Amino acid sequence: MVAQHEASAITPVQVAPVKNGQGRDHRIDAMRGAALLMMFVDHIPQSLLNRFTMRNVGFADAAEVFVLLAGYASWLAYGRGFKKYGVAGCLKRIFRRCVQLYIAQAIMVFVSVASIRVWRHFTPVPVDFLEPELAHGIGWIWRAMTLDALPSNLNILPLYIVFLAGFPLYFLLMRLQRYLALLVAGALWFLINLDPDVNFPNWLDPDGWYFNPLAWQFLFALGVTASAETERRGTDFSRIPVLSFCCIAYLIFSAFQAFPWAQWSLPDLRPLGDSVSPAKSWLSPLRLFDVLAIFYLMQSSSVARVWASDTRVGQILARVGRYSLDVFVVGTILDLYARLVFTSFGDGWILQIVVNVVVLGVLFALAGWLDARRKRQQSQALAAAG
C-alpha cells in the first residue's frame, strides 16, 4: 500500500507544490486510484472488465504502479518528516503506519478465511480459493500473524510493511549520498534476478513470497528517489524528446508483446512470440522498464497534470487514490465475494453488470464519504481555531 501524508488512514498525501505556480500535483493520487481499481478488477478472473486493464497492454500491471507510488508517497509522508518532526517523532509515525497496515492485513486474512469456510458449507468452493493449510483448524493463525503465511491476493500489504520499516535506512543512505540508497537497492535487485530463489519464507508456498521483497524494494527505492528529486528541483521531470520517444517505443513493443491476441480471436502479432515471459515475482527488467516508462511520461506531462486536477474523471480517481488503505481493504474483501458469487451462480451478463456496478459503486462511494468527512473535520478545526 502507498503511504499517505499523515499516518492516519484517511489523510491524503500532500504532493509538494512546484515553482511554476501550478499548485498541487494530483497525478500521483490519480495514478494510484487507477491502480487500485485495476487491481480490484484483475483479482476477479471471471470479470470481463479484466480484459481492459493495463496488464493486457504491457508487461507491467497495477502492482508495479502501486509499489512505485508507495515509494514516491513515502518520501512525501516521511522523508520530510525527519526534519519536521525530528527523528523520534518520524520513527513513531512510521511505526504507527506499520501497525495500521498490519491490522488491515490481519482483518483481510481472517475475513477471507472465515468467509470461504462458511460459504463452502452451502455450495462447493474451488480449492484454489483457499490454501489447504488454511482450510482446517486454527494452527495457521500464528503463522498468518507473524507474516509467515501469505495467502494468494493478500500479499501486497506485507510487502509495504517491510519497505516502510526499512525506510529509515533508505533515508540514512540518501543523507550520506543522494543516490547511495538507489545504488544499493539496484545492486540487490540485480543479484535477485540472477538468483530468484533467495526470498522470504512463506509457509503456504515453497517458493517464498510471491512479491520477492529483495527485488521489489528497488522499485520502491526508485519511487523514493524520484519524489526526493522532484521536491529538490521544485518542478516536474524535464520532457526530453529522445527519452520520451524511447519510452513510447518501448511501451508500443510491450503492448504488442503482452496483448492477449488469442483471447480476442485475433492473429498473433507478438514480435517475439512465446519467447518472452517476464517474471513478476522478482520484477524482471522488462516489467521494470515498462512501469518506469509510464511513470516518466506521466510525470513529465503538463497535460496529465491538468487532466488529474481539472477533469471529473481525474478528480474521482485522485479521490480514490487519496484513501488507498481503506479502499484497498474494502476492495480486497469485495473481490473475494465477487469471485464466490461468479463461481457459485455463473458469470453471465446480468451478474457481470450487477457485481461490477455494485462493487465499483461501493468503492467510489467509500472514497467520496471519506473525502467529505475529511473536509468536514478540516472545517470544524478551522472554526475552532478561529
Rank of each mutant, 00 (worst) to 15 (best):
V358A: 13
G361I: 01
A367G: 11
W369F: 06
Q377G: 00
V359H: 05
D371I: 04
G361S: 04
Q377R: 15
R376I: 01
L366S: 09
V354I: 12
L351S: 03
A365M: 09
R373S: 07
Q378G: 04
N356A: 03
L370D: 08
V359E: 03
Q378D: 11
I350M: 13
F364T: 01
G361H: 07
R374P: 03
F364K: 06
I353N: 07
L366E: 13
G368V: 01
D371R: 14
Q352A: 03
Q377L: 14
A372S: 07
V362T: 05
V359Q: 01
A365R: 11
V357N: 03
R374S: 05
Q378N: 10
V362F: 09
F364I: 08
A372W: 10
A365K: 11
S379L: 13
A367F: 08
L351D: 01
W369L: 07
L351N: 04
S379A: 15
W369T: 00
I353G: 10
L370Q: 14
L370H: 10
G361P: 02
R376V: 01
V357W: 06
Q378A: 11
V362S: 02
I350G: 10
A365L: 09
G368S: 10
I353F: 15
L370G: 06
V357L: 12
L360W: 09
G368I: 01
V357K: 02
I350T: 13
I350Y: 14
D371E: 15
L370M: 11
F364E: 04
N356V: 00
L370R: 15
V358Y: 05
Q378Y: 13
A365P: 00
A372F: 07
S379N: 14
V355Y: 11
W369N: 00
L351H: 04
Q377N: 10
Q377S: 08
A372L: 06
V355R: 12
R373P: 00
G361K: 07
I353M: 13
G361F: 05
I353R: 08
G368L: 03
L360R: 04
V358P: 00
K375N: 11
V359R: 02
L351E: 03
Q352W: 06
R374K: 13
I353E: 06
Q377A: 12
S379E: 14
G361M: 04
G361Q: 06
G361L: 03
S379W: 14
G361R: 07
I353H: 07
